[in-house]
């Protein structure tokens, strides 16, 4: 028997700010931390149950729990601004950033990486 534990934390903050009628600022920050781990594996003692010569058998399960450890951190930022040039024309700019830290790796290997996106444009309200 063994215990498997999962712990997931999620923190988020979003803000919308309109300092003037022409400008809007917005942003989001999220942080996610997820951990999963198998605790000590309690196996029955096979040498006490089986008959015959077991000198070549290795029933050491000491490292078994570490195989399934998971430890991810994901930090995401999003920021944007809109500026109204005229009642019908608005300039926009925003960006996203995501940074994933994989401290353990699993069947896919270490998956740490980051993503960055910046976007600009013009909006027409007709």
């Amino acid at each position: 028997m063994a215990d498997y534990e999962n712990k997931v934390h999620n923190i988020y903050f979003t803000a919308n700010f309109n300092p003037t009628q022409m400008v809007r600022l917005f942003g989001t920050v999220t942080f996610n931390k997820a951990q999963g781990a198998l605790q000590e594996v309690l196996m029955p003692d096979p040498e006490a149950r089986l008959e015959g010569d077991l000198e070549d058998q290795d029933f050491d399960f000491e490292n078994a729990p570490s195989y399934s450890d998971l430890d991810y951190k994901l930090l995401k930022f999003s920021l944007g601004v809109e500026y109204k040039l005229t009642p019908t024309v608005t300039l926009t700019a925003d960006g996203d950033y995501a940074d994933l830290t994989d401290n353990e790796g699993y069947i896919y290997g270490i998956e740490s990486g980051s993503y960055f996106m910046i976007r600009t444009g013009v909006k027409l309200d007709l």
Binding site: E111, M117, T120, V122
Partner: peptide
């Protein structure tokens, strides 16, 4: 009637392992 048209573009940049952080890109 009300129309809204947004025209622009975006630039994406990936570092290290892209398939998890940018799973839907």
């Amino acid at each position: 009637e009300k129309y809204t048209l947004w025209i622009g573009g975006h630039y994406t940049d990936f570092n290290d392992y892209a398939k998890k952080a940018g799973e839907y890109n």
